[in-house]
């Protein structure tokens, strides 16, 4: 199954990932996540006293603010905020710091700038699918790294990946904006990270499946048959293992290596 991708990747190949933490001085936790030319900056402030309006004071509340690269936020961005909020709520331990609010601010630094102006213009003309959407997986990854940096108690990490379904029925992982325009449908899948455990693998299974095979969030656009959705799931899952390894490595690098033990 040979698919020619514009940037010469194989269908399963992800764009190069980079993740740096603690990039902002004043935020309590921050991360810069780039996936190819898509770059996002996430900042975490908090936990701050008090929940949001109408929030449950027995739990911590999470607030997501999306800052687009230019212009004001519209319906799409509101939707991302909501999806992110729900996703992050499910990975955070909300009962550890009750009656507090944690704000996560996501700034789009670059939205797959590989696309030239002309192409952008053509795409704008085509515009038959929502644009910018492949930002969402990167945003979730960035937010997840920033939460870790801020030391917010988490159940586990979240790794997000986008899968595109071509007209021919083949699945491409991590499509660029340009590729996305040619897709029939796509799915954004968020998985828990693969955990290191002292337990034998069997005991980690919930009802015969590994925990990391569970899913946190799934967002789909376009028309997709059940079979191709399951296909996406399978491919996404295998790629998520790679991404969670990457996340683990990038988290390790920042921890000071020779902190002496406290007496």
């Amino acid at each position: 199954m040979e698919v020619d991708r514009v940037d010469g990747r194989t269908p399963n190949q992800l764009r190069p990932l980079t993740c740096s933490r603690n990039v902002l001085n004043r935020a309590h936790g921050s991360a810069r996540w780039s996936q190819g030319d898509t770059i996002l900056l996430a900042a975490v402030y908090g936990p701050k006293a008090g929940t949001r309006k109408n929030g449950n004071p027995e739990k911590a509340s999470i607030e997501v603010i999306w800052k687009p690269k230019t212009g004001q936020i519209g319906k799409e961005e509101k939707e991302y905020e909501m999806i992110l909020e729900r996703t992050l709520q499910s990975i955070c331990l909300l009962t550890v710091n009750p009656n507090t609010t944690t704000s996560i601010i996501l700034q789009v630094v670059n939205d797959d700038g590989a696309v030239s102006f002309l192409e952008n213009y053509v795409m704008f003309k085509m515009a038959y699918l929502t644009k910018k959407v492949q930002l969402l997986p990167s945003a979730i990854n960035a937010a997840s790294a920033a939460l870790v940096d801020a030391g917010i108690p988490l159940k586990h990490l979240a790794v997000a990946i986008s899968c595109g379904l071509e007209e021919s029925g083949s699945v491409l992982l991590d499509p660029t904006k340009l590729e996305e325009q040619k897709m029939k449908a796509f799915a954004y899948l968020v998985f828990p990270n693969s955990v290191a455990s002292i337990l034998p693998e069997a005991s980690l299974q919930v009802e015969g499946e590994l925990l990391e095979h569970g899913m946190i969030t799934s967002v789909t656009h376009g028309v997709m048959s059940v079979d191709s959705y399951l296909h996406c799931l399978e491919r996404g899952r295998s790629a998520s293992a790679k991404m969670s390894d990457f996340l683990r490595r990038s988290l390790q690098s920042r921890v000071p290596n020779d902190l002496p033990k406290t007496g």
Binding site: L154, S197, L251
Partner: peptide, 18 residues
């Protein structure tokens, strides 16, 4: 004793089996 002592752990890792 956990096998992960003095190693970097990330959220979700299981370090002790009670």
């Amino acid at each position: 004793k956990s096998a992960f002592i003095d190693q970097t752990v990330v959220p979700g890792d299981v370090v002790l089996d009670l």
